[in-house]
Write a protein that binds this DNA or RNA. Structure first.
Length: 246
DNA sequence: AAAACCGACAACCGCCCCGTC
DNA sequence: AGACGGGGCGGTTGTCGGTTT
């Protein structure tokens, strides 16, 4: 079977997203949702592959994305779950509200794995801090991380089943260690405007010229009827927090 | 001061799963 | 039942900024 490519290879832009592209994508999805990723860029006025749009939205532009350093609690969860699940980044991300699989994967490769390897070499005992606990691991070999932790997976499971969309407070994270937007309540705390939060480096520009973007003739209505009710049911905070821009 | 090196992270690629027809 | 298409996932690569030589 010959699969059709997800997008035409020619004529589509690759590489880093520009502020203008981000604005267009956010404007379109906010209004119409992602009814079809493959078709979406055409209607949004973007010369991008649908997959690229999806990735950009899912990892950086959608609401409730948490940007910033990982807390020790989060790192413990990542290490713990990686020990159990392996490289199931999406599953791990599901236990860390606001974190994306891509971000967790990157963090693992750049920090945690190295961190644990170092500790394996340097020490054998004193499982006190996260780094020290890492020293108890047997031979790493990239996978075999045996890390005792106060946070059991059972605890994680129960915390996530209590609430379908657990807030940071549900997990007792010290949110002061990093900027965070994890719930509609947090949106409200931010003076009613998620995008004004300075930590979202790539978002402030969206707010600045959003009216202008919304008038962009390149952004078209979708051909198919869109069930906006379904969309906003899925993302209940959208209407309240995004529509203020219009 | 400039080149080389390195780390962090954004983004791409290709495969797989699953729903639909 | 199987072909097809969309979306999701994980591995990998590219790029950029900081550091070292």
């Amino acid at each position: 079977m010959v699969r059709t490519p997800c997008c035409e290879k020619s004529g589509l832009k690759k590489g880093s997203w520009t502020p203008e592209e981000d604005k267009k994508l956010v404007a379109y999805i906010t209004r119409y949702g992602h009814w079809n990723w493959r078709e979406l860029p055409k209607f949004a006025g973007l010369s991008r592959c649908g997959k690229s749009c999806r990735l950009r939205w899912m990892n950086y532009l959608r609401p409730n994305i948490k940007i910033g350093n990982f807390s020790k609690e989060e790192e413990e969860i990542i290490i713990n779950m990686h020990q159990t699940l392996g490289n199931k980044w999406a599953s791990i991300a599901a236990k860390l509200p606001g974190r994306t699989d891509n971000e967790i994967k990157n963090h693992w490769h750049t920090n945690l794995r190295k961190h644990l390897k170092q500790n394996l070499k340097s020490s054998e005992s004193k499982p006190d801090t996260l780094s020290e606990r890492g020293s108890e691991c047997k031979a790493d070999s990239e996978q075999e991380l045996e890390l005792p932790s106060a946070l059991s997976l059972q605890t994680l499971e129960s915390s996530s089943t209590l609430s379908p969309v657990p807030s940071l407070s549900d997990l007792s994270f010290s949110s002061t260690e990093y900027s965070t937007v994890s719930s509609p309540e947090k949106f409200a705390e931010l003076n009613g405007d998620f995008w004004t939060e300075p930590y979202v480096a790539g978002n402030s520009y969206i707010q600045e010229n959003f009216q202008q973007t919304w008038g962009d003739p390149e952004i078209q209505f979708p051909l198919y009827p869109l069930l906006l009710e379904d969309y906003f049911f899925t993302y209940p905070s959208y209407e309240d927090n995004y529509m203020e821009w219009f």
